[in-house]
């Protein structure tokens, strides 16, 4: 089963999903396609116009380019997902995942998809 994980680059979630025999849908596979593609347009991350256009499938044109770019990369993973694991309020949501609006939108799209979702609050004690 293809399982979308959120945060999508988590080592722990990705490993646990694979360990129990499923396929994690992770950000790294999408990034690999972009950084090792022969048509590198805008190094270092190679986020191209194509990604921004693809982002428009998920968000409106008025959305900031950061959200559009993120959705262009993460959106196709959500389309592929057959189930999802979401960690809410994770302390590890920083760096490229630090965009709160994109995070809300990702969670909204997953919930709209009507697939089995395991939502876990990040433990604090």
């Amino acid at each position: 089963m293809k399982i979308f994980i959120y945060p999508p680059n988590s080592l722990i979630l990705s490993d646990l999903v694979e360990r129990f025999g499923h396929e994690p849908l992770v950000l790294m596979s999408e990034i690999q396609e972009r950084v090792t593609n022969p048509d590198i347009d805008s190094p270092p991350l190679n986020i191209t116009e194509k990604d921004l256009k693809r982002g428009l499938h998920y968000v409106a044109i008025e959305a900031p380019s950061g959200i559009r770019g993120r959705m262009g990369v993460i959106g196709p993973l959500i389309d592929e997902a057959q189930a999802a694991i979401i960690i809410e309020n994770a302390n590890l949501n920083f760096g490229c995942l630090g965009c709160a609006r994109a995070a809300n939108y990702i969670k909204y799209l997953i919930r709209k998809k009507n697939i089995p979702i395991l939502t876990i609050q990040y433990p604090t004690d």
Binding site: D15, V26, E30, Q32
Partner: peptide, 15 residues
């Protein structure tokens, strides 16, 4: 022992 995929190849000058 934990594993995950990585986007960039090892020693990639970009990172």
């Amino acid at each position: 022992i934990f594993t995950k995929r990585r986007g960039y190849p090892p020693g990639d000058p970009r990172i």
